[in-house]
Amino acid sequence: MKLAILGLGKMGGNMARRLILGGIDVVGYDRSAETVNTLATDHGLIPAESVEDAVSKLSGQKIVWLMLPSGAPTEEQIKDLIPLLSEGDIIIDGGNSNYKDSQRRGVWLAEHGIGFMDCGTSGGIWGLENGYCLMVGATLEVAKVIEPILIALAPAADRGWAHVGPIGSGHFTKMIHNGIEYGMMQAMAEGLDLIKGKQEFNLNLAQITELWRHGSVVRSWLLDLTADALKGDQNLTSIAPYVADSGEGRWTVMESVEQGVAAPVLTSALQARFRSQDATGYSYKLLSMMRNGFGGHAVKTK
């Protein structure tokens, strides 16, 4: 099986490597020729010099996986791909697009006879080693074709991936996933900030977070990453207390308003990120560190 991946950043590059290790041929293109050449030389990627070149190296039913920023970059790339593809070919959007855009794109591509899959992808920079969690929206026909690719990317054939529903549902599920993530991170950061502030006890945050990792009801991958980071520097002196929001937390809160469903924790977590951009505090350093730990998101340094 062969597919093309357009966008070989941290996650896209690691996804290409995992697919190649799983026995799938991957044609890759990125604006960075150096990235493409490194993946080709070190990991067996089939290099492409342009989008057109990447598509031309596919045969039969063509599958193109996009790992691009949401919004205009993804929109423009899909528009440019349409004349390069034929009826029955498939485009997969593995980025964090708004689910409403994915629904619209699915209708748009269907008019050209091109299949579409929205794939909410979680796993960050650790997906190469651990496998990715893949939340897929597509027709049954498209999902069946793409299944071997999903299995190669997931932690195992029977877990870590699911065809959750029709087009749009994959990105919707990932949006809510990220909203929940905001709340979990905020609760952990605030709690550890309180522990740090109890100076009379002189508590060791590295010791406590490591303790919680074993048998505690709050044990999680986020806690694992936090404990590991705190072993090096409990004060996080090199990290600025600034926490970016990538968009999906906002979309989750907007969805709660549209549905009339109360989501006070998720809303508060989003507002806290906004507040971090004008304030200082240890909890914001922790949040920024966690985002970097699981997703490789840039950290604003002092």
Rank of each mutant, 00 (worst) to 15 (best):
I5F: 06
I5H: 06
R17D: 12
V26W: 10
D30H: 04
E34R: 01
D42T: 00
L45R: 10
A48L: 05
S50F: 06
E52V: 13
G60V: 09
K62T: 13
K62C: 11
I63F: 04
I63R: 06
S70K: 03
E75I: 03
E76C: 02
K79A: 14
E87G: 07
S97R: 11
D101E: 08
D101M: 02
G106P: 07
I114R: 04
I114E: 03
C119K: 06
T121E: 11
L128K: 13
N130D: 15
Y132D: 04
V136M: 13
V136D: 04
G137F: 00
A138V: 09
L140G: 05
L140N: 12
E147V: 00
A152P: 08
L153I: 02
P155N: 12
A156V: 05
D158N: 14
H163R: 06
H163C: 03
P166E: 12
G170W: 03
T173C: 15
T173R: 10
I176S: 09
I180Q: 08
E190C: 12
G191W: 12
L205R: 05
A206M: 00
H214T: 09
G232K: 15
G232D: 11
D233R: 11
S238N: 11
I239W: 11
V257K: 05
G260P: 07
T267A: 13
A269D: 07
F274T: 01
Y282E: 05
S288H: 02
S288M: 08
A298P: 04
V299G: 00
K302A: 14
K302T: 07
